[in-house]
Design a protein around this nucleic acid. Structure first.
Lengths: 218, 218
DNA sequence: GAATCAATCCCCATTGTGTGGTATATTCAC
DNA sequence: GTGAATATACCACACAATGGGGATTGATTC
């Protein structure tokens, strides 16, 4: 992994999609003024970008999320749909969780706040160009946290007792009543009673619903 | 967001868990030789770390994954279990996808390769200390890609026909055979036949197994 | 000590599910 | 056109799952 060297051999071709004229032109100047970077196109809205980018085919696109008309996210979806081989870095003022995850799901490779210093921005572009995924620190933490199941204590949240929670575990794994009874050394009847109470508390009527409800909560 | 300034006011207390003595002592020297950083403990295995860290309570732990005895990941799980307020940065030679996701799920905040240059390592520690989540470029990309549902075409992957895939959809949502039949304007018997074939192809014997298999594949 | 709750067990009845076998019409490929 | 795959449909059996009722024990709370 190499840092801070792009220098001579290759110039990264970049396009900017940003509705604020000042910001857009500021980025353009920054890029064209930095060796190894070239701003090959700028767009003030998503529609123009979607129409034009497949022909321009830059290496990296700096994409604002909040655009008049279609959003930056929809913009990416439209271009990915056409399998245009472009990398996207989202540039936005807010670190809204939904925006972050929607952007990444849509296919963005990086996610930075607009307040990112110019040097870091250039580094990020190189990073993406080389196959990385630059993110502001807080953004990265949100992304990482999405892997850390908060484990909201499903049992407590639904008023399940320990035994019920235990049985729910087996239920979700697909065990037959018989098998659960065998595992816990209790009668099938007892298992049935517990499950009845579980369903009552979870407001479901079948095992399938219970499984879905359980899995969707984590 | 601030960069490259930790200087005087606060010293970050760090512990190192690493079985290779050379690497361990190298890190210790690096940390103690850098202003703003202090290596308060080192461990050659996970067991010692788990036993001792709750008392030492460093701000950040640099954790190797491959340790003799319990792994670095299990180590984190054990400490998180006790709700010890420590941030973890994984340090490893391999960028194995499973390791990455298991580490992050376990509660690691950062993930770096051992080949990361010292300066970047120190930056990463500061980043974690401030609430960020530093990752090597390739690692970040893997994490980001995990949001980009490849949608491996479940039907094709298992040799399901269009109709079977359609029915599997309802099955997984918890619809009764009756309801599926109603939705598709076919008889319940036909639904049953399809489901029999689906189970055969998916190598499952119950609806629960089918749901789990289906959900786990995306 | 009465009330409450968790955990245990039982009966009855109905519906849902899984598996066995079989069959027909259509379509698509060779 | 023969054969394979697909979608459709039926019968029958056995077991699993769900819903209604009720009951006992032990621990905890008030």
């Amino acid at each position: 992994m190499l840092y801070s060297e792009n220098s001579s051999h290759e110039t990264i071709r970049i396009a900017v999609v940003e509705d604020d004229k000042t910001v857009r032109e500021g980025l353009q100047m920054l890029l064209n003024g930095s060796p190894g970077f070239s701003c090959v196109a700028t767009y003030g809205n998503g529609e123009d970008a979607v129409a034009d980018l497949p022909a321009v085919l830059p290496d990296v696109v700096l994409m604002d999320i909040n655009l008049p008309g279609i959003s930056g996210i929809e913009c990416i979806l439209a271009l990915k749909e056409q399998k245009v081989p472009i990398q996207f870095i989202m540039l936005t003022v807010f670190e809204d969780s939904d925006d972050i995850f929607h952007s990444l799901s849509a296919g963005a490779s990086g996610y930075l706040l607009k307040q990112t210093p110019p040097v870091k921005l250039l580094e990020a572009i190189q990073d993406v160009y080389r196959g990385g995924s630059p993110m502001s620190g807080e953004i990265a933490r949100k992304v990482v946290q999405s892997f850390q199941h908060p484990l909201p204590d499903y049992a407590a949240a639904n008023g399940l007792t320990k035994r019920e929670d235990e049985i729910l575990g087996y239920l979700v794994k697909g065990y037959f009543y018989k098998e659960i009874a065998g595992e816990l050394f209790i009668s099938v009847e007892t298992v049935r009673t517990h499950i009845r109470n579980i369903y009552e508390k979870l407001q479901v009527r079948t095992r399938s619903e219970a499984i879905l409800k359980y899995l969707n909560s984590r």
